[in-house]
Write a protein that binds this DNA or RNA. Structure first.
Lengths: 353, 353
DNA sequence: CTTTCTTGTGAGACCGGTCTCAACTACAAA
DNA sequence: TTTGTAGTTGAGACCGGTCTCACAAGAAAG
């Protein structure tokens, strides 16, 4: 099949000629706008069918200004958290006849900027973004079309946002650990930090990360744990260095007796590493993770998780964004969805000597 | 509908005016084609920067005919198999500066048809599809743009296709089970059948499903198992009925002593169901599944899997398709990637009385 | 029997790019 | 001086739709 020999697609003009009406009239029927008499409508429809006319959505978008699609930029589609959220988004979008252009940022700001530029050039009507980093949000602030944030809020950015009660979730989960007697508790996240941490949680702009850390620290403080800040470990994403970080953590002198993981991918890495080190959950170490990934219920022991309404998260942002596309002028909403903790078997009493 | 706060975007004409050159010249610089003198180029570029010009990709596609994006239709993004394959596709696409519009078919032909229609209307340059069903392929055959098939071949459709050695993989996996002494072996797949099965494997058009069944039957035949066809169970996808099917299978009088699962989602369902029934893997029942999903290595016991090169699968189709977009005229290729079996602990001797 | 309104239709501009073609400028070769 | 030729530039058509506007014909109103 030679692509070069242009596939001369059928246009409104062709249909118009076939139906012996003007281009304008044919367009009215085909585009479903304006008024047309029944007889003419039938004629045009028939001609269209005979010619196998297919509208060119691009040309349509060209004049109307709206493309009928929204762009979604997530960190990593492979992460079950995101694929589920994306399904929520697509389902909501499909209901409104809108389609979704997906882009991966790999959690890198540069890739994110680029993805946004491309999507904008493609004239998406709106954008749903899971900001990779917090410091660098200029590119988000200057976006001209409706924007909605998924899972991660940005205080400086007053746009529709759907997140979960991260602080509270982290608080409750950590409490569950302190109540079991744990004092050396680590929080392990894939997020990376632009600058230095030094316990200045307020400096972290990405809400999800900040709120969870605050919740974690709250719980630690409640029971008088000193310097809990030092037990927060960043950068445990998909990389070799991350693996090393985890190994070091587990083999260290004062290895934690309990770990709270920021997502199921990190948790799986931890789970494997813990085994590799010959440690036992929950005897030697307790584990709780964010996101009720499917594997967490089939391990031995099954993992206690913070269950986030991920599908709803996606569905909600999409609905918010679409409502705005339809002309809703309400001030931006910030929806915070509740989480529940599913207790399984991965939390035990502290093994501390 | 108020779109009013019109965002009067900057066009080539605006830039041209600002730079005091003709629209054509400005377009040449901005579009990167034709010849322009250094001085004029600089002037235009400067004007563009000053005005913050952003090209309208839609308008560009309009005239060039190519949109710079490809459409991908998969069964279910949530299935880790697909999300990984999609990442392979996006990575390959990004390298060529092409972007990906993703659509979910939910494994339903109607949704698939619809998705294809929409993508085509959006003028995608090419299409990658994982055909949901086998019988109904008219809509695929009449696609005018380059098409490539992922994971599932269609014999009647002579287009670029990348699959794995399904028959061989199923054969080897089943053999592993027969060698362990199993005779009552079930093959459980999420695929649904249009008509009746009755053992006429040749009637199944979807290559993946057919080849696997053939391999399965081959292995059964080798050791003289009669009527193995009756142990093939379709329709175990995401649904309540699927759950029922599995339960019935496990509780039946002559429940199988070994199961081969067609994908990790089915396998996870099976794993849970097996536990629920109080059965033990591998003592009471052995399990092998296609796809080395991440959870399969952390269960107790870890699951023996057929490891498919999923990422490569996605990357390869994308490369094939992109090559064709660039004008390659070679006859369609059918690439078959090899699989390996990762032996873990889920296969034991037959528990048959 | 006009006057006004309604309805259906066609002509043609327009969206924001690309691209063809002709014209103009130098400068070199004849 | 004339003719080529290559390099630059501008004018305007074009892609395939939408949409504004003018106009004709019949219906309703005066």
């Amino acid at each position: 099949m030679k692509r070069p020999p242009k596939a001369p697609s059928i246009t409104v003009s062709d249909v118009a000629r076939e139906a012996k009406v003007s281009k304008a009239t044919a367009a009215r029927v085909l585009g479903g706008y304006g008024r047309v008499s029944k007889t003419v409508r039938m004629a045009v429809l028939e001609a269209a069918k005979a010619l196998d006319y297919r509208p060119n959505e691009l040309a349509r978008s060209m004049t109307t200004g709206r493309s009928g699609s929204i762009g979604v930029v997530v960190g990593d589609i492979e992460n079950p958290f995101f694929s589920l959220a994306v399904r929520g988004i697509s389902d909501a979008a499909r209901l409104s006849g809108i389609n979704v252009i997906l882009a991966n940022s790999g959690e890198e700001v540069e890739a994110e900027k680029n993805a946004i530029r491309v999507l904008l050039a493609k004239q998406v009507d709106g954008l749903i973004v899971t900001p990779a980093q917090s410091g660098d949000i200029g590119h988000l602030a200057e976006i001209a079309c409706p924007l909605a944030l998924l899972d991660r809020a940005l205080p400086e950015l007053d746009v529709d946002t759907v997140t979960v009660d991260d602080r509270d979730a982290a608080l409750r989960a950590t409490r569950m650990l302190t109540r079991a007697g744990h004092r050396r508790i680590a929080y392990v996240t894939a997020a990376t930090l632009s600058g230095d941490f030094r316990g200045a949680a307020s400096k972290i702009n990405t809400s999800t990360v900040r709120e969870r850390i605050l919740g974690f620290l709250d719980a630690c403080r409640e029971v008088g744990i000193e310097g809990a800040e030092r037990n927060i470990h960043f950068g445990s994403g998909r990389s070799e260095s991350a693996h090393a970080v985890i190994q070091r953590l587990l083999r260290s002198e004062d290895r934690p007796t309990a770990i709270l993981a920021s997502d199921s991918v990190v948790a799986l890495d931890l789970f494997k590493a813990i085994r590799q080190c010959g440690l036992n959950i929950p005897r030697d170490i307790s584990l709780i993770t964010f996101h009720d990934a499917d594997w967490t219920s089939v391990t031995t022991p099954p993992i206690t998780v913070i269950d986030q309404p991920v599908y709803a998260l996606g569905k909600s942002v999409a609905e918010l964004l679409i409502r705005r596309l339809k002309g809703d002028d309400r001030p931006p909403e910030r929806i915070v969805l509740p989480t529940t903790i599913i207790e399984r078997m991965s939390v035990g009493p502290s093994s501390e000597t």
